[in-house]
């Protein structure tokens, strides 16, 4: 399965934020999306998630046949976790499982999902408003994964997590990548190099893949920075 973007354009007033995006993202890979501040990474995600209308171009899914991306196809994890604070973790999961019943393959019990996300037993029946930032983040990721969307967009989701949780999340993402197209935006170069299979940079409104070829990590890093600096 592929996510194909063709000639995508997005302007804010006269500023062309996304100039002419052409790219194919494949299932089974984690794409690290790098870009300088204000490069348009979040705008690209917002366009793909249809939070923002695009000015031109198209994007679609191609498996055996080409089809439009539906709401159920996308999971979008924001850097600031947003969870309904009046529910407990268990209730939130129950609700999400019920509304996604038709799409969930090999449905597990709620506690199995909690185990998968390493959420402690004593926290499962607490109100989400009493969860820590890291736990809220885990819940946000979990419900997006449970829904089993084809595309997972992660907008700097690990930046504010402690290193233990970061490592847990990295392993979790690696374990689910075979069934999804994962695009992961980050500012942390090491994280991108460690986690992602492909590095894609968004610079001057254009999306381009940076090939690693036979470079070691230091040289590859330099190459990425050079590409980001390019006028």
């Amino acid at each position: 399965m592929k996510l194909i973007i063709k000639n995508l354009k997005k302007n804010f007033d006269k500023k062309e934020v996304l100039k002419n995006i052409n790219f194919e993202f494949e299932k089974g890979k984690i794409y690290g999306l790098l870009g300088r501040n204000g490069a348009g990474k979040t705008t690209l995600f917002n366009c793909l998630n249809e939070d923002l209308p695009i000015d031109d171009g198209e994007f679609f899914l191609k498996d055996k046949e080409v089809r439009k991306i539906e709401a159920e196809d996308i999971g979008y994890v924001l850097s600031t976790p947003n969870v309904p604070e009046f529910l407990t973790g268990r209730e939130f999961l129950k609700f999400f499982i019920e509304i996604n019943k038709d799409r969930i393959k090999d449905e597990k019990t709620i506690d199995e999902y909690f185990d998968f996300m390493k959420i402690e037993k004593e926290d499962r029946d607490k109100l989400l408003k009493d969860y820590s930032h890291g736990m809220k983040n885990k819940m946000q990721m979990l419900v997006n994964i449970i829904a089993n969307p084809s595309i997972l967009l992660f907008d700097e989701p690990l930046t504010s997590l402690d290193i233990v949780v970061q490592e847990e999340m990295k392993q979790m993402l690696k374990s689910i990548k075979k069934d999804h197209i994962i695009i992961f935006s980050t500012h942390i170069m090491e994280l991108a190099l460690d986690l992602c299979d492909e590095i894609v940079i968004l610079n001057k409104g254009i999306l381009e893949k940076i090939d690693k070829n036979d470079l070691d990590n230091t040289k590859f890093k330099d190459k990425i920075i050079e590409a980001l600096k390019e006028e």
């Binding site: 998630n49 709401a71 947003n82 009046f86 509304i99």
Partner: peptide
Amino acid sequence: MNCDHSMLTYRIYRT
């Protein structure tokens, strides 16, 4: 404030 603020960030909630 207590519900849609968070839920609307999930695409599935907007179907």
